[in-house]
Amino acid sequence: MTHIRKQTVLGLRAGDVFRVTRTFAESDTLAFGEISRDMNPVHYDERFAAAKDFRGKICHGLLVGGMITEVGGQIGWLASGMNFRFRRPVYFGDTITCEFTVTDADERNRAKAEAVLSNQHGEIVIEAWLTGILPGAAERAILAQN
């Protein structure tokens, strides 16, 4: 059982922070493009990326932003809303750390969270604000068995 899942079983509250890290490869973008059908040439064509003033092809923003779902899946977060601000491109080979912070949780398990995704240089690439529902006692008991 992961640290994130263990904390969830104990119960989540405002101020809980979780971190995950991932390095993105070109193959990730190719797979995401096939699934999402987002074939924007900025992800596939060096010339197009250069014309947009990027130093190379970039990862899909939602692919990188999807790191939030790694945390959300571990804690059993049922999302009701997500807002993203894409601040910098992510290039193939970049290592991104997602810091997910529960900012508010009420007695009905309604919650808010913020996520900050930064690259290996400490530059923020994405900011996100989330709303959702945390697992209650019954769901946490099930998670404890896995």
Rank of each mutant, 00 (worst) to 15 (best):
127 E>Y: 05
46 E>A: 09
37 R>C: 05
40 N>I: 09
3 H>K: 09
20 V>H: 00
20 V>D: 07
14 A>E: 14
49 A>R: 06
87 R>C: 05
32 F>K: 06
102 V>C: 11
39 M>N: 03
108 R>Q: 15
66 G>K: 08
119 N>H: 10
133 I>Y: 00
85 R>N: 08
26 E>F: 09
54 F>S: 09
106 D>C: 00
100 F>I: 12
100 F>W: 15
145 Q>I: 08
114 E>R: 15
5 R>E: 04
94 D>S: 08
6 K>Q: 15
95 T>N: 03
85 R>P: 03
54 F>K: 11
126 I>W: 01
61 G>D: 07
6 K>I: 00
94 D>R: 07
26 E>Y: 09
1 M>I: 01
44 Y>N: 08
130 L>D: 08
20 V>L: 04
125 V>S: 01
60 H>Y: 02
112 K>S: 13
97 T>E: 15
22 R>F: 10
121 H>S: 10
6 K>W: 00
3 H>Q: 15
144 A>C: 06
103 T>A: 10
71 V>C: 07
69 T>W: 02
78 L>T: 03
4 I>V: 14
97 T>V: 06
80 S>D: 11
11 G>A: 10
111 A>W: 13
106 D>F: 02
43 H>M: 01
43 H>W: 06
90 V>P: 08
97 T>L: 11
116 V>Y: 03
139 E>H: 08
71 V>R: 12
141 A>W: 12
51 A>K: 05
85 R>V: 12
28 D>T: 11
125 V>W: 07
100 F>S: 04
72 G>N: 04
21 T>V: 14
72 G>Y: 12
87 R>I: 03
21 T>L: 00
85 R>Q: 15
21 T>P: 08
53 D>V: 04
65 G>K: 02
48 F>P: 02
33 G>L: 02
27 S>V: 01
118 S>L: 13
64 V>S: 06
25 A>Q: 01
82 M>D: 02
139 E>T: 15
124 I>T: 15
144 A>G: 00
94 D>F: 12
69 T>I: 07
78 L>G: 05
109 N>V: 07
13 R>C: 11
118 S>V: 15
139 E>I: 05
50 A>R: 13
43 H>Y: 01
55 R>I: 03
131 T>M: 03
127 E>P: 03
113 A>W: 01
63 L>K: 06
26 E>R: 09
66 G>H: 00
63 L>D: 08
66 G>A: 07
43 H>P: 01
32 F>D: 04
42 V>M: 01
7 Q>S: 14
132 G>C: 00
72 G>I: 08
17 V>D: 03
135 P>T: 02
55 R>K: 14
61 G>N: 11
105 A>R: 13
47 R>V: 10
91 Y>N: 03
75 I>H: 01
80 S>R: 13
134 L>H: 10
38 D>G: 02
64 V>F: 02
63 L>V: 11
127 E>M: 10
135 P>R: 01
112 K>G: 14
16 D>V: 06
131 T>F: 02
118 S>G: 00
105 A>E: 08
27 S>H: 12
104 D>P: 10
66 G>Y: 09
117 L>D: 12
108 R>E: 15
